[in-house]
Design a protein around this nucleic acid. Structure first.
Lengths: 227, 227
DNA sequence: ATTACTATATACCGAGTAA
DNA sequence: TTTACTCGGTATATAGTAA
């Protein structure tokens, strides 16, 4: 005897629910025969009839069964199930608008600070990011399970801060992405050199450790805009 | 022998594609074992393995099969299939003639009040909304989980209140949507500036805080008409 | 026309197991 | 550890048909 949880068993209902919803079944009863539903779902009249009985049994639809025609509408439970599906697709496709990366605050090697304070960069930060960064970056280590989000971020169009030369030293381009941490505006700096880095360097107008009262080991959510 | 068209046979692939997409497989290869995928899909390792082979055969994913681990990503065809599904859900849910957005009453920055009281707007509000707004807006903060409804609202055809110039200052167009809160007629003003705003500004003939006895922190349901 | 039952056919899943 | 084969049990679909 194979038992199924609610969520697992739901899957086969979805297609039928969607067809009914597309015919207006979320708002009111719609006339639909089992033959018609079968055609829309590429299955036999018999199977469609059975599917309707299953949907009724699962309380995902309600039915008004007349002598020659049945009328069907979705129940609230049916609408909720479809909306859950919809939300999952939104998560998939709107992941492109922003991505929330969880990570742990760590102490960096002071590299960020060195770069941020270079006047050649600083002017551009102010112009292109809309704020003058505090002289120091917040370093956030990203766990492996979140690294794909960093990849996503790196593929989004960055705000490019141009490199320059100074005292015979070459400073490369820096790619930034606007972000927020607890609603405070900041920016993630992607050093163009290292492609496999799992530490985000974050610029902010404020001293984030003090402003947010965070320290090494604390978890933070960096909400990166990808637009 | 039962032949299936492409579209019909696709159905069983969708769930697996969605899981892979949610792990970032639309953007890059992601490491995922057949056991892991099986757990996520509530099926055995064997079945998940078979499903992966089927997805490969249908050219919906591509795979980099290493000695100890496989990496999978969606092909363009796989992405297209998911997007087709997403579009169908959009059709279902955006066909709706109203959307109910839950939010929390907050205190705004007084901007709404400034705009509402401009005579250039006020006349149009009276004409186009059917009521003369109280001199102040109710601000409702929408949680992230409800933001997709705001997107839906923004895609509906708005009532446009034309901008104007006054004392050398330019006032832009304002987009409104008719709505109700607890059956009281009102209108949601869409701030044209930022697309990611999560605060609704609400116009009403009455002083809503007093009329409904609501205050900061209270939850309200804004029922927005999309027709 | 319908809906939907019963019996048969088929597709699917997972246990066992190899590589 | 992996991936993925074979095979047998079971869930699911359809044809035939009743009401």
């Amino acid at each position: 005897m194979m038992e199924m949880t609610q969520a697992e068993g739901d899957e086969k209902f979805i297609l039928a629910l969607r067809r009914i919803a597309l015919m207006g079944g979320m708002h009111d009863y719609v006339v639909i025969s089992s033959r018609e539903l079968g055609e829309l779902l590429a299955m036999s009249q018999q199977s469609a009839s059975k599917r309707i009985l299953e949907l009724l049994d699962a309380e995902l639809i309600s039915r008004d069964l007349g002598a020659r025609r049945q009328r069907i509408r979705l129940t609230q439970k049916g609408i909720d199930l479809l909306r859950k599906e919809y939300t999952e697709y939104q998560r998939i496709f709107e992941m492109r608008d922003e991505v929330v990366i969880k990570g742990i605050v760590v102490t960096g090697m002071g590299e960020g600070q060195y770069y941020v304070t270079q006047p050649g960069y600083q002017e551009q930060f102010t112009e292109k990011l809309g704020f003058t960064p505090y002289e120091g970056t917040l370093n956030v280590k990203v766990p492996a399970s979140e690294l794909h989000k960093v990849q996503t971020m790196k593929k989004a169009k960055p705000i490019v801060v141009r490199g320059f030369e100074r005292n015979g030293r070459t400073f490369g381009d820096v790619e930034c992405h606007k972000a927020t941490i607890q609603n405070i505006e900041c920016a993630v700096v992607v050093p163009t050199r290292s492609h496999y880095d799992d530490v985000l360097e974050i610029l902010c107008k404020y001293h984030l450790r003090r402003t947010l009262s965070i320290n090494d080991g604390d978890e933070v959510e960096v909400r990166v805009s990808l637009v």
